[in-house]
Design a protein around this nucleic acid. Sequence first.
DNA 1: TCTGGGGTCCTAGGACCC
DNA 2: TCTGGGGTCCTAGGACCC
Length: 442
Amino acid sequence: MPALEMGSDMSTQNLSSPLFALVDVNNFYVSCERVFQPKLEDVPMVVLSNNDGCAVARSAEVKALGVKMGTPWFQMQELAKKHGIEAYSSNYTLYGDMSSRVVQVLRSFTPNLEVYSIDESFLQIETVLKQYQNTIELGQKIKQQVKDTTGLPVCVGIGASKTLAKLANHLAKKQSQFAGVCDVNAMAKPELYQWMSETEVGEVWGVGRQIAKKLKAQNIHSVFDLLQASPQAMRQQFGVVMERLCYELRGTSCLQLEEVAPAKQQIIASRSFGKLVTSQVELAESVATHACRAAEKLRSQNGVTGALTVFIQTNPFKQNEPQHHQSITIPLADATDNTLTLTNAALAGLKQIYQANFRYKKAGVILNLISDKPSVQQSLFEDVASKGKSAHLMRAMDDINSRFGNAVIRSAATGTTQAWQMRSGNKSPNYTTRWDELPVAR
DNA sequence: TCTGGGGTCCTAGGACCC
DNA sequence: TCTGGGGTCCTAGGACCC
């Protein structure tokens, strides 16, 4: 079954099945700090979030003590004293800079690269491989090169789908015998299944706490259990994302490499308060600040927005206090990036949702961007993987794109393809108008 | 006392239209 | 037994990711 029918470059398509490598920096923020302060090597340490609230990065020593990601610093005081854990405030400028250095090294291996997050990149490597004895040699080379150039330690996971590469990366990190590089694609099936049955289902990329809980309730505990579950049944219960994930686990790639980062759809600027806030004046100050910051971000990526959302919320951890989580979306008369317009809209919104008598913990502003690029959302696995349907979808897309260069296309879960033509200077926050429907064969 | 910030996708459901 | 129903547009909210 051809995995990807949507690729535009037919010449390079499907010559061989894809092979993905996920390169992930170990304990990224902690490792960055250590590059510049070598004395911190071997010191148990954490890097803290804004307001020095939570641990957002933990060194190996701290992880070994059982400290979970996001643990509030105040909750680990005792442990910190006992084991000499040091805490550092985060320095995102530094981390961003280190991140681009790592990407630069990775690009020297292949241009087919997706920067997935500040510390992770996917590489598509089946064409690169010829120059190496095997995937492990390539992985080790990458690892060494990043270490030599940036000082940062990475692990490499390799698999036939992004999800499997993620899983391989997990094994590379947890199991020392892999020496930081693991290829589940080259692994003998019995060995792979053994690892899978020893790995909790919650470790799978896309299986979070809620879904893991539901899976376990029906006796799906390990990755191997999930591998054996029927994708159709999983879809019925959990939706299309889960179905796709099942196929990915089975080695059928459904998720493409996204070499070009898609334009942002929204911009968020928000912060927690150091203390609880009740007055509207104080909230207004922070909301205005966030609106300004959001507007700056917007302009820095040459965007415009058609609607602005303001939200305020109480402290969800104070369960004995009345909770209030309110938001409102203000449509803007014209698409804009103007700070004053946005600030005024934000303040007007705040006025409408503010209620006295609540103690607020957080405020923020969300901008909904107007996209000017055609985008495609594939909802159905079948759309991607089954030849007939995706061919039909492609025809529909070609047709729409040739007639309306500036269209937004959605393939709905029912298998219909719909298109909206962009309106210029449109006033609606939803910036799209449905113009036609193209039937797609089921 | 003290609990991050910034994103994505998908679904359900209400209002409305014909 | 009673019942309209399909489709659109929009929002809220849940789940996930790092």
